[in-house]
Design a protein around this nucleic acid. Structure first.
Length: 482
DNA sequence: CGCGGAATTG
DNA sequence: CAATTCCGCG
């Protein structure tokens, strides 16, 4: 019927070159919106689609913090969604339910206090300070959050340059010069450092890592405002591919086929990681920009560059003032780990991610707790809470572990490494299939220019460490702290 | 409005 | 599995 639902039909794209050989994104990022075999488009994908199209700015748009968007016209969005899914009776109530399911998956969380405002979790992950490389990877990683199921194995994190390019085609040359990506090809970087891409297990685990900092931060609410630093420029003007389409009619949304590569689409919208690279010093006005901004400039790029506030910031401040956090948010905080340091806490936390979470050792909450005790945790943002690295275990798709009911993951985190090997295959991941070739870290290169001497990095962060090492270090740190 | 449980779907 | 649908609670 009239429903233009394109559902699955078209899908099948040739998965092209775009797809890069193994990039490690979050699983959710990968989710094929539509793949032949796969299921239909996912709501979050759809949301991203809408967000990226200017035509829909009136109904839904990026606004506020990084990754935050507002559904300006809920009914319309619901309608569009219903259209897409051929669910004529779709309404915001239902759509929002679906959105809520994402909380546990960590794909989204609600911005409290703001009506119809949700936020993608991209950021979470990202490393807060220490932009250095890590961040670079973050984008991807971040995505990684949950995904991981194996897909991305930790060890492999092949992010190829090409991939990056695809993702961020628009990066300014300055940032992404050819050189940046270049290295990759040939040189497999021996370095072992594979950027942390791989490493981000923490992400994988669901963000395990950073648990929230502790008490130091105090009440620190993670308010949305400060989430993470990388800049987000959600407002890419269609730069990315999807949009190529000039103005398609709404139907265009349906285009699953337009983007064969979900990543592309999705990622495209992600914030630029690079921003994070910026030197800390400049943090200046970062945050404020956001709020007010709103998009007056529609479509355009925001004046804000997105420099995120540095970690410190948050810390000091309790929050932007929004009182946004509500109980649950606070709650999250708690569980944290023993004190990490402040800024460091964050930073490291991330870095450590793994470790942190590690909790394996100990601090993690028991399932029971999380489950019912407080549901808060899952929510959001919290991502922080993260559990552990359990990543590998399941591979399904997204669901990692943290989610809810399942917690089997506990088994061990050690597997980071191990699992992978075998693991890859299993997953769904497209990536896996790819050859893991080279994975130089483009990012690294990227960063390099910008970044200062590595030496400054904390060990844990240091790129050169191999995953394992890092891991280890992390743990160590962790221990230490405790 | 927003949340999440529960049952149901495809 | 990822929603969809329905619903009670705050």
């Amino acid at each position: 019927m009239d429903c233009n639902c394109v559902s699955d039909l078209l899908l099948t794209p040739p998965v092209p070159t775009l797809w890069t050989p193994g990039i490690a994104f979050p699983d959710w990022a990968y989710k094929p919106e539509s793949s032949p075999g796969s299921r239909q488009i996912q709501l979050w994908h759809f949301i991203l689609e809408l967000l990226q199209k200017e035509e829909y700015q009136g109904v839904i748009a990026w606004q506020g913090d990084y990754g935050e968007f507002v559904i300006k016209d809920p009914d319309e969005v619901a309608k569009l969604w219903g259209l897409r899914k051929c669910k004529p009776h779709m309404n915001y109530d239902k759509l929002s339910r679906a959105l809520r399911y994402y909380y546990n998956k960590r794909i989204l969380h609600k911005t409290k206090g703001k009506r119809f405002t949700y936020k993608f979790n991209f950021s979470k992950v990202v490393l807060v300070n220490y932009p250095l490389l890590d961040m670079a990877s973050s984008p991807f990683l971040l995505a990684q959050n949950h995904f991981n199921g194996g897909t991305a194995t930790p060890d492999c994190s092949p992010v190829t340059p090409e991939a990056l390019q695809s993702l961020f085609p628009r990066l300014p040359e300055s940032v992404r010069g050819p050189s940046l990506f270049d290295r990759a090809a040939g040189a497999p970087g021996p370095d072992g450092d594979k950027l942390r891409l791989d490493s981000f297990p923490f992400l994988g685990s669901g963000a395990p890592c950073y648990s929230k900092p502790p008490s130091l931060l105090g009440p620190y609410p993670r308010n949305p405002s400060f989430d993470y630093p990388w800049g987000f420029n959600p407002y890419l003007p269609g730069a990315f591919s999807l949009n190529n389409c000039p103005k398609l009619t709404p139907g265009s949304l349906y285009s699953s086929h337009f983007y064969p590569n979900p990543l592309q689409s999705s990622l495209s919208q992600l914030p630029h990681p690079f921003s994070s690279l910026l030197p800390p010093g400049d943090t200046t006005g970062a945050e404020r920009a956001q709020t007010g901004g709103t998009n007056g400039s529609a479509g355009g790029q925001p004046p804000r560059l997105c420099i995120p506030p540095y970690p410190s910031v948050p810390i000091g401040r309790t929050e932007l003032g929004n009182g946004g956090m509500s109980d649950r948010e606070r709650g999250e905080t708690i569980p944290g780990v023993p004190g990490a340091g402040l800024g460091l806490g964050l930073g490291l936390g991330l870095g450590l991610g793994l470790g942190g979470v590690g909790v394996g050792g100990g601090g993690r909450q028991s399932p029971s707790e999380r489950r019912k005790g407080v549901k808060q945790d899952p929510e959001s943002d919290s991502d922080l809470e993260i559990t552990d690295l359990s990543d590998c275990s399941s591979e399904n798709e997204n669901e990692p572990d943290f989610s809810l009911g399942k917690e089997p993951r506990l088994g061990g985190r050690s597997h980071l490494l191990d699992a992978k090997s075998g693991g890859l295959g299993g997953g769904l991941t497209p990536l896996s299939s790819l050859p893991p070739p080279v994975s130089p870290h483009p990012l690294k290169s990227l960063v390099t220019p910008l970044t200062p001497p590595p030496s400054s990095l904390p060990p844990a962060l240091s790129p050169s460490l191999s995953m394992v090492d890092r891991h280890r270090e992390t743990e160590t740190l962790k221990l230490t702290q405790s």
